[in-house]
Design a protein around this nucleic acid. Structure first.
Ligand code: FES
Ligand code: FES
Lengths: 157, 157
DNA sequence: TGCATACAGGACCAGATTGGTCCCAATTCG
DNA sequence: CGAATTGGGACCAATCTGGTCCTGTATGCA
């Protein structure tokens, strides 16, 4: 547990797939759905949301599609989570919201929880989509990784 | 988002309260509920679960209760999450389960996601309940922090 | 001009998860 | 014996989420 939503999970796979094929290439939702085995409406929904932010650039009309709006190395995993799930806050008291426990005391629990939260955020900000897309720095991978169709077994079990 | 369940949130508050009052003192669920404003049945449910693991030691009968089974510095936040929510895995592919994407390929996405996951786990393992309970290392806190009743505003808004 | 393609922006539903409550049995102390 | 307290469930209502679908708009091409 302590899990991202499936939508975010999908987004990481999709973005990594896009990033792997060059930042400037264009992909249609249909194409990405075929290559990842993620249901098309889902892919569409996710890309739409990413398109509204400065993560993907969308082009309408025939021969339209999506491409990365920025260099893969400049889009962090944290930012994707932020876009799809809102601010990262491990607990209600760990964020900046202060909606509850609003006793306006410098609560020791909340202060430490914020530290925990910060640590998690730092970890997620330190990894970019470029990293996710191309982790094989040391050696090129000889096996034909079928990760272009990664979630094929997901719905089943 | 990327949030723990409320139960885990509660658990952190409860354990930190216990840890703050010395590791060997005994607390009843009723007492903790009063002091935290967390509903008693909820407190009870959480403590029961923590008692089954080696986190809390429980004593039945009249004048029974709970106390920490180990030193506060030896119980990590990660362990509490593990106990209440199961293994920490950011995505389905980031854990060791391999239930899906089980194409048995060395998937670059999943390998990096595991790295992300590892980073999060490391961050959470590096913080103990003792840290959460007593973060005021540099200076003692002058304000009377009402964090013994932290979640009072939670249900409302 | 007409049409096929593709994104934009919703509404909508069913299933799963979770917060929360409650009940009853077992244990211990006075 | 009786009060207090944990143990271990079942149980329900509300929320969240994955997933689908529909209608509109923009673009390219014959
Ligand atoms: S103020 Fe949020 S836990 Fe104390
Ligand atoms: S095998 Fe899990 S994402 Fe590729």
């Amino acid at each position: 547990m302590l899990r991202l939503t499936k939508q975010t999970d999908y987004a990481l796979v999709l973005l990594s797939l896009i990033a792997r094929n060059g930042a400037s290439e264009m992909f249609t939702a249909r194409d990405l759905a075929r290559r990842t085995n993620i249901p098309l409406p889902m892919v569409s929904k996710i890309l739409k949301r990413l398109g509204k932010e400065e993560i993907l650039h969308s082009v309408r009309g025939a021969s339209g599609g999506y491409r990365l709006a920025r260099d893969p190395s400049e889009v962090s995993v944290a930012e994707i989570i932020l876009t799809l799930e809102g601010p990262i806050s491990i607990t209600e008291c760990s964020g900046e919201s202060d909606t509850l426990c609003a006793l306006e005391c410098s609560c020791p629990v909340s202060s430490t929880l914020q530290r925990v939260n910060r640590a998690v955020i730092d970890a997620l900000e330190g990894i970019s989509i470029g990293d996710v897309a191309a982790p094989h720095h040391a050696a090129s991978d000889p096996k034909p990784c079928s990760c272009t169709a990664p979630l094929i077994g997901a719905p089943g079990a």
